[in-house]
Design a protein around this nucleic acid. Structure first.
Lengths: 220, 220
DNA sequence: GTCTATAGATGGATAGAC
DNA sequence: GTCTATCCATCTATAGAC
């Protein structure tokens, strides 16, 4: 089992307990990504994980708290990857990376997760669903936790000194919309519309397409 | 009360019945747009509409059927407006409208609905939420009902003969992502991130921003 | 047609045995 | 810590009185 499926608390706990907690965590993330938060019951989760019904409340406190813990773990992983890529791009360009490399730091991590070859597709779908279907607590975090986006906004403003700041914010918003639209359902719809011409499994190609489109949008 | 809040069946029914049905329809649309499908009960809907609990099942058959009926009405209205604008743009340009006018036909209708000055904000938010949180039936319709998008794809391919068809489909997908991201939560987040610099209430300005960005994306 | 009362099912959470 | 049995709240849908 991959590292990111194991609880941070594993070292502090007995192996069985850690295994149970990790199994609940993984089953919940997968089921929620596939069917949505409200459509998955605690019974579904514990049955899929092969543990008893009380495990969710024992290990996480409640169903809501379980979902919140998955959300926090995954979003902080994602934001860390994005921040690292942005930092590396800055290092390559004396602190002033060009638009395309800033956008690549924004797009690439979730796209890499979405690669069918890996085992993190569910994590991306989970995050996207949790963003729109999550609890009130998740919505509050989304609203107030924008520090990771601030770094991207600043970098874009520096890279586009000719643009008014509001314009940069709006275009960042458009780019995030492009990312959030990368859901299974939308891919299937596009596949159907294009008569099978689009293949979302080719991640590097999709990344290049997104960068071409968005970079040009910032040049307008 | 505006015309679009009145049931198509109004003429065939007694006034009281039509009024009750319309009240249920309007309350359900509003509550679902605000709180999500699963978070609103039939009891919430009938209480807000000021009618009795059994009304939903009597007039619509079930909660699912009620939501589906709202979804069908609103999406067909939206698609009709978009098709009309696309048709008018084609008329102005001898059947070959430029990219910007095609995209305007795609963007303008939902943006006009989102205008705070009007009374159709809930309808846009309803459609966006229903797209991602809706029932299995709604998801099937979304997947199979792409005829309205085909016209846009064809128009874009004609306007961009230099682009491979897959590229056009992907860019149309990116544009739809921009539209679907226009939710209250995302606007609030952007407002917070930008320190209050973005004002989503200015619909013509937002439309121009979206067109600038997307049109440039198609030129890449 | 409207409304009340209730059936029937399901869900989250927990007590208590082991 | 694990697990079973169960409590209790909530929901959709409907029967039946008016």
């Amino acid at each position: 089992m991959s590292d990111h499926l194991i609880s941070d608390d594993a070292a502090e706990l007995g192996q069985d307990e850690a295994a149970t907690k990790a199994a609940v965590f993984a089953a919940a993330e997968r089921l929620f990504a596939l069917h949505g938060f409200q459509n998955v019951s605690v019974r579904d989760i514990t049955a899929a994980a092969g543990v008893n019904l009380a495990s969710v409340n024992y290990h996480f406190g409640s169903k809501d708290a379980l979902l919140f813990e998955i959300f926090r773990r995954r979003t902080s992983e994602l934001n860390r990857e994005r921040a690292r890529m942005l930092h590396e791009a800055a290092g390559r360009h004396g602190g002033k990376p060009p638009v395309r490399e800033i956008l690549e730091a924004l797009f690439a991590p979730p796209l890499r997760w979405a690669d069918p070859a890996g085992d993190r597709q569910v994590s991306v779908q989970f995050i996207i669903r949790a963003r729109s279907e999550g609890t009130e607590e998740i919505r509050e975090v989304l609203q107030n936790d924008v520090s990771h986006l601030e770094r991207f906004a600043e970098a874009l403003k520096t890279a586009c000194p000719h643009l008014p700041p509001e314009t940069v914010y709006w275009r960042l918003h458009f780019c995030l919309g492009m990312v959030h639209n990368n859901r299974f359902v939308e891919f299937d719809r596009l596949h159907h519309l294009s008569g099978g011409a689009t293949r979302e499994g080719d991640v590097p190609a999709l990344l290049a397409r997104m960068l071409d489109f968005a970079e040009a949008g910032f040049r307008a």
